[in-house]
């Protein structure tokens, strides 16, 4: 009994230390720079532009990710096909490589010196050092999170709902639209929110591919290296406060009841 009580105390101490480790820096950042950051939204045009750029590019990346990755997630969740395991591993790859490395890889493919980047540049689409580059970097690093969560969302919907819909006259696409999509909508939305939040917080890949124009994460780094901690604090605090919005949305989505048979 005594050893069990001692173990409980140790677990409680470790858990408390962990929570403090996560919470204290964030609270410290917001308490130190939050008020100045909110005030800076009115006076700092570069911060406002950076924030707008971050929101717009993250949203575009998320929309592209949802459009492109949803079918992939569905295939991985529902179908058995040769190379499925390889495709799943490829989808996870961007999660495990360092993000600056991801930026270098993207630069190799989309930079002006590369065949693809050169062709796009010739066609009038500049990728590196442009908002398009930011979108590409965000898409690359955050879409795997969407694929993973969307795959889970589809897997939670029993395939027999679709089977019943098919016997009731729906073709595959119609059954997906009328049954699978509504039943997985909550999970897919949560997946998109996670992707968007990850895109907003991305730094490593973006800073390689597109330093300018600056998204908020790059701006906070730029202010830190150029002017020191004091100037970086308000920008960083705004980014943290901004991150609370998708987190709250995610919690609200996850509070919903699961589907029933």
């Amino acid at each position: 009994m005594a050893s069990r009580a001692a173990l409980s105390v140790v677990v409680a101490i470790l858990s408390s230390l962990f929570l403090l480790f996560v919470v204290v820096p964030v609270v410290g950042l917001v308490s130190s720079g939050g008020a100045r950051g909110i005030a800076a939204l009115a006076s700092d045009a570069e911060l406002r532009a950076s924030l707008l750029l971050t929101v717009v590019t993250a949203t575009i990346a998320t929309v592209l990710g949802v459009l492109g990755a949803t079918p992939v997630a569905y295939l991985l969740a529902r179908r058995a096909f040769p190379g499925r395991a390889i495709l799943a591993a490829l989808m996870d790859l961007p999660l495990v490589i360092p993000h600056p490395v991801a930026g270098i890889a993207l630069l190799l493919v989309l930079g002006r010196a590369s065949p693809i980047g050169g062709a796009l540049y010739a066609a009038g689409l500049r990728v590196a050092s442009s908002p398009t580059g930011i979108v590409c970097a965000m898409l690359f690093v955050s879409a795997p999170l969407y694929v993973s969560a969307a795959r889970e969302a589809f897997a939670r919907v029993d395939a027999r709902y679709e089977a019943v819909a098919r016997t009731l006259g729906d073709d595959a696409w119609r059954a997906f639209r009328r049954v699978t999509l509504p039943l997985s909508a909550r999970g897919l939305t949560a997946a998109a929110v996670v992707m968007w939040a990850r895109a907003v917080s991305e730094f490593g890949a973006i800073v390689i591919l597109t330093y300018n124009p600056k998204v908020v994460s790059v701006l906070s780094y730029d202010r830190f290296t150029s002017y020191g901690l004091s100037e970086a604090l308000p920008v960083a605090a705004v980014l943290v406060l901004f991150a609370i919005v998708p987190l709250a949305a995610l919690r609200a989505l996850r509070a919903g009841a699961p589907a029933s048979r």
Partner: peptide, 13 residues
């Protein structure tokens, strides 16, 4: 044809 499973699989939405 129609199919009825042991678990009804009524569309919950």
């Amino acid at each position: 044809l129609g199919i009825v499973y042991q678990h009804a699989y009524l569309f919950p939405h």
